[in-house]
Design a protein around this nucleic acid. Structure first.
Lengths: 259, 259
DNA sequence: GAACGTTGTTCGTATATAGGAACATGAAGG
DNA sequence: CCTTCATGTTCCTATATACGAACAACGTTC
């Protein structure tokens, strides 16, 4: 796939992303400034985006918001493949047995992207929701996914020595991260103690396909419901879920290894 | 908002939508044919879309799939506004009391768009999922939303006399639909009996803001769990939920009426 | 193995679009 | 009331992009 980048296309995507990042909406002029694109160039673009409902233009406050069409298309990403549906049912099984929250996600650049979540309706704080990203090094299954990379590759991914701390328990250095990854490689499990969310611990496993780690499954538990016996149960259920999910992905006709 | 449409922007959106509609992926040439756009014009566009992860290009099968970025942006549509979060918690309350599935959605063109859903993990067939669209006339809360329009306006929305049947119980004519809408206007509730999904009945209420119906809430029940006593409970809970949701939306600073 | 199909890719120019400058509008400030 | 600072909108042309045609690389078919 040879790649001739296209300025206008890149701009449209920038517009969508920028508007989405402004929760309270953004005016045309403001958008022109932050993207460094002339207003007159932006104008027909945002008009078309609004016309097609990718953006919403609020006339009275003269601000653009993200539109419903992105929501509709975005959800196709999951519903197009029944794989994720089946993966979710595996998560639900574990959820029923443990009453704890399960996550399934993949690596997306240096972050981890939540795809599916299985939880009971709880009043507790949530770690995250599908569609969100968190730094891979700050999450249990993020580290599980990272564990496929050598210390050198990790160094490349994080050129700066110090990792931005997500909570006060987040691993702070690349060296520290590499130590943890080594331990994951030997025992097969990844642990996280309040590194992404205060009050929450995680146990996670990597999901391998064709000997490459593509995804991870994590079980998140409030610290006060965590103990050694339950940890054993979690690990057993996760090992079971891991096998099922790897089977689901392996059976799929679609090629998961692309470059 | 004056509108000068932009061809390239419209094309990019067409590409995204078309690729999303092909579950099993689509090749560049195929895309060129269905969109009637030259391959050479498409090429830099899809390259950029793939580069930015709005599409995924599978090298080995030479097919484009919908990418993760759309999923990420799409979910912002919901999470950007805490309104929907709060609306969902209202749905969850009703769900806990009834153990039945709740939907919240809005009108999108002539269809109804599911935004939120509250359900127990059940083995039952699902009516739909957030992000999906169904014909408004085939669903309980779709008809609740439609009930704000006069028979003349409905005629305009559905120029053809016969409505495409979704199931064998779907209302078949515009006149029949108008009769149902009249009854909704008088009693305040909308009923659906296996019109969108065989085996499922719905009771729904319209959500009014500034005297305009903007959305609807629906409670979906398997037919065998439906009876007159429960219907009374459903109607009472829905009336309660309706008031809460209308209050949530009314308190919001954001203008929900834009044109 | 030659002929035809498919795929993606490249190139040059005809054409559509980008963007500076100017304009219309309204709100805030002196 | 005039000025200043926002907003969105329009116009014209320099410029970037679209697209036909030709190409390369595979797979099938006869």
């Amino acid at each position: 796939m040879a790649c001739a980048l296209h300025r206008t296309t890149a701009r449209i995507l920038e517009i969508l992303e920028k508007v989405a990042s402004f929760t309270q909406g953004i005016t045309l002029s403001e958008l022109s400034r932050v993207l460094d694109i002339p207003k007159s160039s932006l104008h027909p673009l945002v008009c078309t985006l609004a016309e097609k409902k990718y953006l919403i233009y609020n006339n009275v406050e003269e601000r653009y918001y993200i539109g419903e069409k992105l929501f509709i298309l975005g959800n196709r990403y999951l519903s197009n493949s029944d794989i994720l549906e089946r993966i979710k049912s595996v998560l639900l099984e574990v959820n029923e047995k443990t009453k704890e929250t399960l996550y399934f996600g993949v690596l997306s650049d240096c972050d981890v992207l939540y795809l599916e979540k299985a939880e009971l309706h709880s009043k507790f704080r949530v770690v995250s929701n599908p569609g969100n990203k968190l730094p891979a090094y700050a999450t249990g299954y993020g580290k599980a996914i990272l564990s496929q990379f050598s210390p050198e590759e990790i160094q490349e991914m994080y050129p700066i020595k110090d990792l931005a701390p997500y909570t006060k328990h987040t691993v702070k250095t690349v060296d520290g991260l590499n130590e943890q990854l080594e331990s994951i490689r030997t025992c097969g499990f990844s642990y996280e103690i309040e590194e992404s969310t205060i009050g929450i611990r995680c146990v996670a496993v990597p999901i391998k396909v064709q000997n490459r780690i593509l995804a991870g499954v994590s079980l998140a538990v409030p610290v006060f419901r965590y103990n050694k016996e339950r940890e054993e149960l979690f690990k057993q259920l996760l090992t079971d879920a891991k096998a099922k999910i790897e089977k689901i992905i392996a059976e799929d006709r679609r090629n998961w290894i692309y470059s």
